[in-house]
């Protein structure tokens, strides 16, 4: 690997490694994109695509993200934006889970939906999109519905789970699966102009608190629908939380629920006491 490091150092401008050099290294040493990126980051070289991350995320942090794995459960409104942002952030492995195919009514808000993708599987669209954005990111698609029987197997090996589901009973099952695996869960949900975000660490019970009394499998989004901007806002907040969990930095929305009201343009933090044990 010394030859690779030497080559990368010779191709870098300062500590920035341009994409052309990354590609040249992949060809010369017969390596994948992620392998070259890991070698560059370990040598203190920053792939140029991440230069605007600098100081927000250090080169060491960028390597940590590349070595991380996140599951996105649901590849619709929230999931599409979350996958896009995680790929651009440079999270190395994404497990994406959704049983559905794109339909016309997804086009108003779901980032991965296009006319060309109608009728095609959402997880496969996610895989194509990520490959087009950042080939250092490996996507594992699962075109299945998560449930109590398969949750633990689907999520095994990831470090953070993003809840981008549209079903309350499945959210409760996802929370159970995360609890059994000891995984942090970044929860988000939307309806109309409104959304909320909360991060549940192992041992916390925020999902039970939010949905334990639910009467129906869906919320007020049944009546309100979901416009284009609400999933973008809430998914962005979820990715910020996931990024902090992975880096082990920053202050999480733990034991707190951020309620977002885009109609009144209010962000209200509800702090209903310490996390339940």
């Amino acid at each position: 690997m010394a030859a690779l490091e030497e080559f990368l150092a010779s191709q870098a401008t300062g500590d920035l490694l341009p994409w052309s050099a990354q590609r040249a290294a992949m060809a010369r040493f017969d390596l994948g994109c992620a392998q070259v990126e890991a070698a560059a980051l370990a040598a203190g070289l920053l792939p140029a695509r991440y230069q605007r991350n600098r100081t927000t995320i250090s080169t060491a942090g960028q390597l940590k993200l590349l070595r991380s794995s996140v599951a996105v459960v649901g590849c619709g409104g929230l999931g599409g934006y979350a996958i896009e942002q995680l790929a651009r952030l440079g999270v190395g492995r994404l497990v994406v889970i959704d049983p559905d195919r794109f339909e016309e009514h997804n086009l108003n808000r779901q980032l991965l939906s296009t006319l060309a993708e109608l009728g095609r599987a959402k997880v496969e669209a996610a895989e194509r999109r990520v490959a087009a954005i950042n080939p250092a990111v490996a996507v594992t698609p699962h075109r299945v519905a998560l449930d109590a029987t398969n949750g633990a197997a689907l999520l095994a090996g990831v470090e953070v789970v993003i809840d981008a589901l549209d079903s309350i009973p499945v959210r409760l099952e996802l929370s159970q699966a995360c609890a059994s695996l000891g995984l942090p869960l970044v929860h988000g949900a939307i309806g109309g102009w409104y959304g909320h975000v909360a991060t549940q660490l192992p041992g916390d019970r925020i999902i039970d608190q939010l949905y334990g009394g639910a009467i129906e499998p869906r919320g007020v989004e049944q009546e309100l629908g979901n416009p284009s901007f609400t999933p973008a806002v809430i998914a962005s907040l979820q990715v910020a939380e996931a990024c902090k969990v992975l880096l082990g930095e920053g202050l999480l929305l733990r034991g707190r629920q951020l309620h977002v009201d885009l109609w009144s343009m209010e962000f209200v933090e509800l702090s209903p006491g310490p996390p339940c044990r």
Binding site: G77, G79, A189, Y194, Y211, G213, R218, V220, E221, L270
Partner: peptide, 22 residues
């Protein structure tokens, strides 16, 4: 709190809609 919990005098009751969309 639970929806069937009694309110003490002077209570501040906050009610939020259930959001399930993704």
């Amino acid at each position: 709190a639970g929806i069937d919990d009694q309110l003490p005098d002077g209570a501040v009751l906050s009610i939020l809609p259930i959001l399930g969309g993704g």
